[in-house]
Simulated assay, not measured.
Amino acid sequence: MHTVWKGSISFGLVNIPVKMFTATENKDIRFRQIHQECGTPIRYKKVCPNCDREVVEDEIVKGYEYESGKYVIVSKEDLASIASETRKTIEIIDFVNLEQIDPIYFNKTYFLSPHETGDKPYQLLRNAMRKTGKIAIAKVMIRSKESLAAVRIYENCIVMETIFSPDEVRSVELVPGIQNELSVSDSEMSMAVQLIENLATDFEPEKYTDEYRIRLQELIQAKVKGEDVVTAPDLPEMANVVDLMEALQASVEATKKSKSASKRTRTRKEKSANE
Rank of each mutant, 00 (worst) to 15 (best):
G39D: 08
R130V: 14
F203C: 04
P236W: 04
S260V: 15
R43D: 08
K271P: 07
E116F: 09
A239F: 09
N127Q: 14
K134D: 00
S251C: 08
A149W: 00
M1R: 08
N240A: 08
S258I: 15
A192Y: 10
L248T: 14
K88Y: 12
L195N: 12
Y105C: 02
K223N: 12
A247V: 10
S144N: 14
P121K: 02
E270D: 13
G177E: 08
Q249Y: 11
D102V: 13
T162F: 02
E218I: 05
I178A: 10
S75I: 05
I135Q: 00
R143H: 03
F203A: 05
I163N: 01
E116A: 15
A150Q: 02
S251L: 02
R266L: 15
L199R: 13
K269Y: 06
D210I: 06
E206H: 10
F31D: 04
T201A: 10
A247Y: 07
R87I: 08
T117F: 07
Y71E: 08
R43H: 08
E218S: 05
M245R: 06
T201N: 11
L98W: 06
T24H: 03
N240K: 05
E211K: 11
K263W: 03
P233N: 04
E67D: 10
V4L: 08
I214C: 06
M20R: 01
Y105N: 03
V4S: 06
P17R: 00
H115S: 11
R266N: 13
A222H: 12
L219Q: 15
K225Y: 11
V172N: 06
V18H: 00
E227F: 11
T89K: 01
A128C: 14
T231I: 15
Y208I: 14
I93E: 13
P41W: 02
I158S: 01
A200Y: 08
H35K: 12
A247I: 08
E218Y: 01
T109M: 10
L235R: 11
C157K: 11
L235T: 11
S10V: 09
L219V: 14
L216K: 02
S81W: 08
E85A: 12
D210E: 10
R53K: 14
D186R: 13
F106V: 04
D78N: 12
D94I: 07
K45C: 09
I34F: 05
A250I: 12
S10A: 14
I9N: 00
L195S: 11
I29D: 04
R268Q: 15
E54P: 02
S183R: 06
I60A: 03
M160R: 01
D202Y: 15
D52K: 15
L199P: 10
S68H: 15
G7S: 02
S260P: 05
K263A: 13
D28K: 07
D28Y: 06
I101R: 01
S81P: 05
K257G: 13
L124F: 10
T132N: 03
R268C: 09
G39H: 04
E85S: 13
L112C: 01
